[in-house]
Design a protein around this nucleic acid. Structure first.
Lengths: 339, 339
DNA sequence: AATCCATTTGAGAGCGCTCCATCAAATCAC
DNA sequence: GTGATTTGATGGAGCGCTCTCAAATGGATT
């Protein structure tokens, strides 16, 4: 079995190469007679077009890249990314796109990975699961005129398309809820302050407290890394401050925090209430079920893909900005059900 | 800024296209004089070769696909896959390969996804994170002569290359450990019995019991799905049988089981001991720290990639089989430290 | 019967790169 | 100085597909 080309198929069907190409790409433009004749040969031979050749000729690869510019440990330390990837993959399938995944495992690797992700010809566009507020990737994307959609808030909003959730409102919601329940010493385990999400979710915390005329007690604000360990460590640090409630900027950190609280012999929510952020699947399953801010992670991923594809099809493309709302999901960990 | 081609670069440098190509692909074969002249132009213009053209001409894309033929929910319900993907991605980076990720979210989708994954031209080979013991993918891979490496034990060992861990020995190790500790009613939450891993890990359980002359009590054997919920549900079912120890075929199921045990007012390991399988990062962090069988998931992923790449470079290729050992990691959940 | 238009098909020119055969220049032995 | 050998650069022929444009076909219109 040697490689079968369009040429061969055309010969076997007694038509031209162009006709076979049309049958594959736009069957409606070929008369039923020719179409079935060609289709028959395709079916019999099991012919499959060579995607590299097609990409070269059409300048469209039907492939998009997903680049997550963080060291992988933190990527998979938080199931958030798994859900995001799932959404992105799903949308790719729906639109018959292939997904290329670019992760890196150390800063050193990042250069080579970027180089591959930014190389021409193979990728129609890029989804960037942004994170750091300063990112060397961005200028390169712009310089090389690569079509990209951010997931999250990019540093330069004016030049970049993105899909994000309203993180400030979300954490505002969470902290307001805790305030409403009467907690006095509300702490927060924030995300890294060099990331947009980290900054925004802390801003929502501050905003909620200020709105009620509370002062910000800096000793109740600890920076985590969105991972379980970070939440655990941060919580241990917070314990000495005796908070009665904690807003964790991610569910994963909330899980770590709960463990730290338990190990200190305290109970959630009786001694310390917890609210998370993300509403990961685990949030509903864990013990106690986690009160959290739901953000549509999967949907966000899908929207990123769809936005990218639309931009692909309708150049020139002004940057598009999509911001989705969040929602407070009340379960047991905040004490609302027991107080 | 229009597209820059090899042709242009050659013109600018005053050399032929072939020379520029050689500077890029095999600098040593070009005299220093020419080389630096060409390199200068490349640097100044920021020229990047078009990968589609390169792929077409060289018949090598430097891209491999990872296909996980399970519905995604279960893919990301168990962090195992996250770790596997991480290993695969890492090896790809190391060898300057790009990774295309094929997931699907329903059986319906699988056809189109398979079609894309098996299409010619864009992928040099495929890594299949096998799972089901019967898989329509396999005959297609063979029919289309696609280079592939399995992760896990494939149905037909003779024709397929694979990288696996010794699951039978692993669970044998786990259950023998529980026996050694003196547990009498040892249950197992197994994986799905239509998957090789599920079957093998149950076989190890049976083997260990038989070796000690124990009868298999079918009521102590419950099938799970490798996910947390499955472990939880299975454990609830097992509780009525009053086991004093449980071997869960994955850490993730062990976590679910622990929750069920707790909710029943029992303690781990005092009332029921637990051993898991995988040694996920969370196994060490959780409460109580989980005794488990460590399998080198990341390394497995990396090996799969490296095996594939080697096969790529040295056709013809007899199928290669790599089976890695597992290791018992003793922590608190089995009671070994407290008994 | 002649003209026009719509619909299809075919021919051919790329897409941007690799690779091989070829050729020119440089090196060496004698 | 000559011929043999080595080294390095070049030109051109693909790789397998898409796409434009012109030609062919077959009514419909006048």
């Amino acid at each position: 079995m040697k490689k079968l080309t369009l040429e061969e198929v055309a010969k076997l069907a007694g038509v031209s190469r162009a006709t076979v190409s049309r049958v594959i790409n736009n069957p409606a433009s070929v008369s039923p007679d020719f179409r079935s004749r060609v289709q028959k040969v395709i079916d019999e031979t099991g012919y499959r077009p060579n995607l590299a050749a097609r990409t070269l000729a059409s300048r469209r690869s039907q492939t998009i890249g997903l680049i997550i510019p963080s060291v992988t440990q933190s990527v998979f330390g938080d199931p958030y990314f798994a859900v995001l990837i799932e959404g992105i993959s799903r949308a790719c399938n729906l639109h018959d796109f292939t997904l290329a995944l670019f992760l890196f495992h150390s800063e050193d690797e990042s250069h080579r990975v970027y180089e591959r992700a930014l190389s021409t010809g193979l990728l129609d566009g890029l989804i960037v699961a942004a994170d750091k507020i300063i990112d060397p990737l961005i200028p390169q994307l712009i310089a090389r005129q690569i079509l990209a959609v951010y997931v999250g808030r990019p540093p330069d909003v004016s030049q970049t398309s993105y899909v994000d959730v309203d993180n400030i409102s979300g954490s505002f919601l969470a902290v307001s809820h805790l305030l409403r329940l009467g907690y006095q010493r509300i702490a927060t385990i924030s995300g890294p302050q060099d990331s947009a999400v980290g900054i925004d979710r802390r801003a929502g915390y501050v905003k909620a407290l200020k709105q009620r005329g509370r002062e910000i007690d800096e000793s109740l604000v600890v920076e985590g890394d969105f991972c379980r360990d970070g939440g655990y460590t941060a919580m241990r640090q917070l314990l000495s401050q005796e908070p009665d409630a904690v807003f964790a900027a991610s569910d994963t950190m909330a899980f770590g925090a709960i463990q730290a609280i338990r190990e200190a012999g305290l109970k959630v929510p009786d001694d310390i209430a917890i609210v998370g952020f993300d509403d990961l699947p685990l949030a509903a399953q864990c013990d106690p079920p986690l009160t959290t801010i739901r953000q549509p992670v999967r949907r966000n991923g899908m929207l990123a893909v769809e936005t990218l594809i639309e931009m692909l099809e309708t150049a020139p493309h002004p940057p598009r900005h999509i911001v989705l709302p969040t929602e407070l999901i009340i379960r047991s960990s905040c004490g609302a059900l027991t107080r």
